[in-house]
């Protein structure tokens, strides 16, 4: 029974990783950009929520609603001012610029918010649990997983059924042809990054509510997110959820065997998938 519990915890943890990964997956799918500052942007959003909670006395959930438009604007600006200028055939400039941004964000947070670890307090929700048959499941992990499913469902819906989504798909397939049809790729890219930052805000809410965070934890979140994207297969959002679940289960099972193996087990699961299915489990995009 303890194993069933471990696996269920892992699946729910996978929901958190899928939230980390969804924004990354979206941006990569549309502009082939891997944002190495993605993890640090999640941490930044968590601090933003914390500031709103402290300043306005709101609950973290309401604060996230306030933070989302701010992050949306930040994402739009980041793409227009910086990232649009480095996109191109050469992958070196975007990689190095986002890597530089990652270092700048980490240290700017360190300088302004100190290295102390923080938490978004959600009151009784932190410890609440539901008895689902033989196992007890935390309400917060369950909410995280439900949010991940909702976010991925919403993103899929936007991509498939809206005007913006059609522009996303067209630009992803062929920016030049899309431009001839009246789509402005730079604005589409800005919209994609802005949307990704809204997803980042949701991820940040659960990151901060479920565990402590400090300015240095961004890169590890980026790595989990990246692993989920690769395991799932490029361009597949539901694959990303599956990838997150695999990493989550690998981590909780590894951690149950030996607490020191928790993170390592997740990475090893990723390497095994890379060895057996280099294009991921549900590949869609050809890249």
């Amino acid at each position: 029974m303890i194993w069933l519990d471990t696996v269920i915890q892992g699946i729910l943890l996978g929901g958190l990783y899928a939230l980390f990964a969804a924004g990354l997956s979206l941006v990569f799918g549309i502009m082939r950009l891997v944002n190495l500052a993605h993890g640090d942007l999640i941490v930044l959003a968590a601090y933003l929520i914390l500031i709103i909670v402290t300043a306005l006395g709101l609950s973290p959930f309401t604060a996230a609603l306030v933070a989302a438009p701010i992050m949306f604007a930040a994402g739009w600006t980041l793409q227009r001012v910086v990232l649009n200028h480095v996109l191109g055939d050469d992958i070196l400039p975007p990689l190095l610029v986002t890597f530089g941004l990652s270092i700048v964000l980490q240290n700017a947070l360190l300088e302004t918010a100190s290295a102390d670890s923080r938490r978004l307090s959600v009151g009784g929700l932190e410890t609440a649990s539901l008895a689902l048959g033989p196992v007890n499941v935390g309400v917060l992990p369950l909410l995280t997983f439900a949010s991940a499913v909702a976010v991925i469902f919403a993103l899929s819906h936007i991509i498939r059924h809206t005007r913006l989504g059609r522009a996303f798909r067209a630009t992803s397939d062929d920016p030049a042809a899309a431009e001839l049809m009246g789509v402005r790729p730079r604005r589409v890219f800005a919209a994609a990054t802005a949307l990704a930052m809204v997803v980042v805000t949701v991820a940040a809410l659960y990151l901060g509510a479920r565990a402590n965070f400090d300015p240095a934890i961004g890169p590890a979140r980026l790595i989990y997110a990246f692993e989920a994207v690769i395991i799932g297969g490029l361009g597949s959002l539901w694959g990303t959820l599956l990838g997150g679940v695999i990493i989550g289960v690998a981590q909780t099972v590894g951690g149950a065997l030996n607490p020191e193996w928790q993170i390592l087990a997740g990475h090893l699961a990723f390497l095994v998938v890379l060895l057996l299915r280099p294009r991921g489990l549900l590949p869609r995009a050809v890249d």
Partner: peptide, 12 residues
């Protein structure tokens, strides 16, 4: 892996 994915794979 290629390009950006190569980069993050080396990090992992």
């Amino acid at each position: 892996l290629q390009g950006a994915y190569f980069a993050v794979a080396t990090w992992v």
